[in-house]
Design a protein around this nucleic acid. Structure first.
Lengths: 173, 173
DNA sequence: CTAAACTTTCAATAATAATTGAAACAATAT
DNA sequence: ATATTGTTTCAATTATTATTGAAAGTTTAG
């Protein structure tokens, strides 16, 4: 396979993966393009290679910078800005995990804590109330577990992540 | 807080969480409603309590059954079908993980293997080609790691998941 | 077999999310 | 000061995805 074809396939595939997560297809594609480009790219490069508008390119590149997985790169004597992706894939995974934790885990934790104390309600059997609180409790403790796991991964450095954790997870395969 | 209000809040919150993942809001809400209902519900119950159409209720309940987190329950002497959610939250997490692995990890793995052999391409510097294959390799091995981790979790039983893994992840908090 | 009770499908419609492109804004060089 | 080169914003548009509801399909009872 030729390099260009391989790059396109990767960008397309990464875009599809993105939509399965709550990430827009284009945002994932911009990320993919930056990942497989050895040097930094300008807004124009992004527009041309992905066939998207200037506004779109700008918005997505900014979102990626918010996530911390793309950096602005300024070149001396150059007016325009260049962008490059974090190339260390473990660090990328960590940063994405962090962002998703903030966006997804935190909101549901807030809801769960809020509804944790249900009053004995007139018109509901105690069975109903108990079944509800039991369910909420178990989701709550699971969410806390997931949150803790995410924190640990976020704090863990890449080496630990790869060597220790990997051996642990696949002891016999 | 009253039981009804708490239930609504939970259903709404679970729905919001769903949209952040690639799950439709209504599918997540149907799941939430079944989770907090002590008994099984009929299609009519779902329609009424979530204010959705028959077709919508049916499609989402079927999707949840495909995921394995909702079961059909037939009552002797009753024509209509009742549905109930898997209440064990660890099992729910496992089943969701399994489904997401199939839908997300597998497609990108396919793309990655396909583009792994890039020919030395005329018109591209060897630096360019090398940088590309290096990136693909590292994503590939990371994806393999994630896939292995997912398999392990899927196979692991609930007790191990809670006791061993939890202690491991949060050794000092 | 036919009616009744219920489920499933799917084309049409509505709701939501992403994208464009032009205008406003900012920075630098002359 | 103003022309040039670039960035950012945002209302309008387009594309995507979810939802409806009516029709077709199933199953059981009589």
């Amino acid at each position: 396979m030729q390099l260009d074809e391989a790059k396109s396939k990767f960008i397309e595939g990464w875009g599809t993966l993105g939509s399965a997560w709550g990430v827009s297809r284009t945002m994932a594609q911009v990320h993919a393009l930056l990942l497989v480009s050895p040097g930094a790219l300008s807004t124009e490069d992004l527009m041309e290679q992905l066939q998207i508008s200037r506004g779109n390119a700008n918005m997505n590149v900014r979102a990626l910078m918010d996530w911390g997985i793309v950096r602005k790169e300024l070149r001396p004597g150059e007016r325009r800005e260049f962008f490059s992706a974090e190339k260390d894939i473990h660090r990328v995974a960590t940063l994405i995990l962090k962002e998703r934790r903030k966006r997804e885990l935190e909101p549901i934790m807030r809801v769960l804590s809020e509804i944790k104390q249900v009053e004995p309600t007139p018109g509901a059997t105690s069975e109903e109330t108990e079944s509800f609180t039991k369910m909420i409790d178990s989701i709550h403790s699971f969410a806390e577990f997931a949150d803790g796991a995410a924190s640990t991964l976020i704090k863990a450095d890449e080496n630990w992540f790869l060597s220790t954790f990997m051996k642990l997870m696949r002891p016999s395969q």
